[in-house]
Design a protein around this nucleic acid. Structure first.
Lengths: 331, 331
DNA sequence: TTCCGCTGCCGGAACGTTCCGGCAATGGAG
DNA sequence: CTCCATTGCCGGAACGTTCCGGCAGCGGAA
């Protein structure tokens, strides 16, 4: 039997026999309240099913209750960013925050309390503009440009790419090549660096082909053909751009290479379809949903002062080995 | 040179030389305001860059400023639902609304002004519970169960499946088969119906295999092998479940069928990876993002009374022909 | 003339929260 | 004992909007 009007702070206060101020302090842990009173208020709130009214809270606090979320338009289709956005949205909604999706054609900065930028690209004018808006900002991956965000969530891409190459070597690969996007994204730059460092450490001559970020499937195919032609000893291929491993699979097969048998294939971005290919493709799980959640969480901590500006946080990622990198059988 | 504090209704009213009430009425078109006054207020608002404070508005109106969005947990990974959610989120944020993602393990109905349910399944207990919460509700596709939503956005799936089969027939197919999920989803039921109706009209014996909604890739493969074995004349395959066409492609190839040459393949759900396969796969573009936007828009119209309860709206979808259904060459 | 209704505008209250300042009671230091 | 700091609690104002009721002024009907 529950009342049709939802419980307010005043209802709770009356039920607990205290004033609204005390009730508010008790529930938020602010002000000075005795432990017994706090417990009593909490009990009353639970019993009444009290949920704070977000609108009233934001009104009083002069916050908009909204955070802006920008992901480069080009990438909207990718599975990674979809999941990333979901992570941000879910965390925001837990904190009573609204999300405004910021698209490229923005006139003036939207009315938001803070910004989350997913893997910002150096040249992107929208990113530059947003970073200079004077709002608390969190980026996923470091921003390679001049401006400094107030918070960063980043992953050890270079290290994990090293792990991946170790894994390939353990499976018998001696000439691993890399397909990667340009260095305007910090992620791509780190993947690239991780590869070169590994090559240096192991005395292997690097074989790298670059495709632009928004490359259509055709360009990826061309780069793949390029590698097959120019690198005769090629026995492993690491694909960085999202989707490129799946795109190359048919090409490699048509070229007579047996993936997972005499040619190892791995992707730097895991995606559901890499499980469905034949063979399933080894990939680095970037945990995009959690990354989004971490960015949002960090932004909220910056907003309420729990974390200081300049905070950086490492987001764990993981190598997932599948059949495409099983030990090479001699051919 | 813009003030650091954003313009409020009072600022605008002062600038226009009227009271806050009049300013409010003028901007919203309510109350009685002369045309000159309204124009003056509008000018002042534009000049100051006035944006209404959503929190204050929602507080006053006793709305939460939040709508609940439920998509079955099983489907969260699918590209269709990702885009659908994006459509809802974007439209909601245009209307100053927050989105609460409703997950399966809900204790009590969340504090929201209304609900959007994406393609609700009959047996889903969460759906039943939400539909009985007494909140304005919009579903994407009709709800096959008892409860009636206040608004429905639906598409002519059966018709377009008919178009697809016409297209296959025009390419030379004589024995098209269907792979489809169970009838607990209105969408799957309509696809199924569209197929059977077409078969009846054209005097073709239907060949249908059913896989459960949350079928793993293995089940889809099994159903595919089933069809290849039991339907000797099979020359076209229509795959309804999201992702199943891409999953079957390698299987069909291994079975010696040349897709797009002696076997036509089509998907009832378009997805980015269908463009990347070899050959690209013909599909029905369900325009999921727009569908989500339409659901949210309809919900807002229900909330503000612009549209009456019981409104239904047709969402256009489109057949996209690709190489996988090019005219069959005789083998 | 009086009366009435309509138009155009306005003041104040309310929504539910947070925060500032204040006040009584307590208790330890002097 | 007095004095003062601290603890625990509270009232009232404020955030920006919407809405209810009201009040002049005007014009037409009687």
């Amino acid at each position: 039997m529950q009342n049709n009007r939802p419980a307010t702070l005043i209802t709770v206060a009356e039920a607990a026999g205290v004033s609204k101020t005390t009730a508010s302090d008790a529930l938020r842990g602010s002000g000075r309240v005795s432990e017994e009173t706090r417990a009593a208020v909490q009990r009353a709130a639970d019993a009444l099913g009290y949920v704070p009214n977000g609108s009233a809270r934001h009104l009083r606090r002069a916050s908009t209750g909204t955070i802006g979320l920008y992901v480069p338009e080009v990438l909207t289709r990718s599975d990674y960013y979809m999941s990333f956005v979901f992570g941000v949205v879910a965390t925001a909604s837990d904190n009573d925050y609204d999300i405004t999706l910021i698209t490229s054609g923005r006139a003036r900065p939207p009315r938001v309390d803070g910004l989350v930028l997913g893997d910002p690209l150096t040249g992107d004018p929208v990113v530059e503009e947003l970073m200079n808006a004077g709002l608390p900002t969190v980026t996923c991956e470091r921003f390679p440009g001049r401006a400094r965000p107030d918070g960063v969530v980043w992953s050890r891409h270079a290290d994990v790419v090293g792990d991946l190459l170790d894994h390939l070597a353990a499976s018998g690969a001696e000439r691993p090549a890399l397909l990667v996007a340009g260095d305007e994204s910090d992620w791509a730059a780190n993947v690239h660096r991780g590869y070169r460092d590994w090559c240096t450490r192991h005395g292997v001559a690097p074989a790298v082909r670059t495709v632009p970020f928004e490359a259509p499937a055709g360009d990826v195919h061309a780069a793949g053909r390029d590698l097959l032609r120019d690198e005769p000893g090629l026995d492993a291929l690491v694909c960085a751009p999202a989707g490129s491993a799946a795109q190359l699979l048919p090409l490699l097969r048509d070229a007579g290479r047996r993936v997972g048998t005499d040619l190892l294939l791995a992707s730097c971005v895991d995606a559901p379809d890499l499980l469905l290919t034949e063979p399933p493709v080894t990939a680095i799980d970037l945990r995009p949903r959690r990354a989004g959640a971490a960015c949002a969480a960090l932004l909220f901590e910056l907003l309420d002062g729990t974390s200081p500006p300049g905070t950086e946080r490492v987001h764990p990622i993981e190598l997932i080995a599948r059949a495409s990198t099983a030990p090479i059988s001699p051919r």
